[in-house]
Simulated assay, not measured.
Amino acid sequence: MPELPEVERAAGVIRAAAKGRKISKVETTEDTIVYTGTSHTEFAQEITGRTLVDTGRYGKVFYLLLDGDGRVPVLHLGMTGAIQVRGGEALYYRKKPKQDPNDWPPKFMKFILHFEPLEEGGEITEIAFLDPRRLARIRLCKDHLNEPPISALGFDPILSMPPIEEFQEKVLKRGCPIKALLLDQSFSAGVGNWIADEVLFHSAVHPEQTAKSLSPEKIKLLYRNIEYVCKTAVEVNADSREFPSNWLFKHRWGKGKDKSTLVLPSGEKASIKWITVGGRTSAVVQQVQKLEGASKKAKKEKIEDDTESSTSELTDLGDDTEDEEKKRKPAKGKRKAPPEPKQSRKKLKRSGLTQVTGQLTLSS
């Protein structure tokens, strides 16, 4: 799912292409799931003829500031949402569908904004919002920062990081795994699966470690690395090719492969293990991230995140959706095994282990 840096990039693309331009026309397609609290026709009518003053972002949500007294578009990319300027490629998160950028309107389009040129004789700019899996959300809000979904979100690591004392107090109140807490959008808005894993890796904290059991030193590391990871990713415009070579992100996508690409400072090959924490697949470097008090199970606590959150109203937007679909679908070319007798049926714990190598310097 697009996280804080990818959403910042989407807002920046629209700003660079259309700031100061008037919306002359809006093309839409009907979608009663993606359009929330409004219809596609109402959306088009309310924003046509208005000028884009600027764009903004909070957490995983971004918005278009328009002139006039009407409501403004508040957008969430969901899991597979993307922005595409006509003539360029769609900015999908990681995997891109096979699609010719010259095909227009693009497949899975929800709306296309037509912006008038700034100068007479210039070209109209067209920007599309698309989503293959219909997990994105399109809203119109009157007071976008003070009403849902933004009003229900926690601190933004770029825009509103709290003082360390307040951060520590919030962490020590929770008895859930720290990975689950980081994914809770009412705690840290914009932090998703890969950012949480990156932060925990650089902080040498195991994702299953109970939040309230963390030492003040570990909490300070988490605080510092939440800012570090988010700001660094934003500075390179969410281009993963520009991420530091010692980041876990560079090595987390080859689950099940034996390629070695990551080496610890000691020269030892790093072992990456995949576990499920807070409903998400989590990458753990076993030599670095030790679970303290492993004999005690972390207290289970319900986490309000953007998967099924009544607080944020960003429903069906969980990072684990893809993982769950893979579990339900049998692999190609393999026949589904018949179910075992009820008496002998057991729950199987799934885990994976991969060794990878490269250069690593833990930030502190």
Score class of each variant (00 low, 15 high):
E30H: 15
E147P: 01
K220Q: 14
A196Y: 01
V285H: 00
R241N: 15
R328P: 04
P73K: 02
M79W: 10
G256E: 04
S24N: 10
L64M: 13
G333S: 08
S344W: 09
L222Q: 08
P106R: 04
A298W: 00
K98I: 03
A298G: 14
K257S: 14
D316G: 13
A16Y: 06
G254N: 14
K142I: 05
I303S: 01
K300D: 08
N193Q: 11
I272H: 00
G279H: 01
I23E: 01
I219E: 06
K302I: 12
E217P: 02
V13F: 03
D197G: 08
I226N: 03
R15I: 02
Y58S: 09
P157I: 01
A16W: 08
D67T: 13
A90G: 15
L75C: 07
E126T: 05
V74G: 10
E120H: 08
D100E: 15
H206T: 00
G318N: 04
A152I: 10
A17L: 06
L291V: 03
L140Y: 07
L291P: 01
L182N: 00
V236A: 06
K19D: 11
S364L: 14
S351W: 03
I112S: 13
A90W: 08
P207A: 04
L200F: 04
F111G: 03
F115A: 11
K347A: 10
Y63I: 09
Q359H: 07
D239C: 07
E6T: 05
D239G: 04
S312R: 00
L182P: 02
Q84C: 05
I112K: 08
S260D: 03
I150Q: 02
E325P: 00
D103E: 14
M1E: 06
E42P: 05
H206N: 07
N237F: 06
A10L: 02
A331N: 11
E166H: 12
S213H: 08
Y92I: 04
R94W: 12
H251K: 00
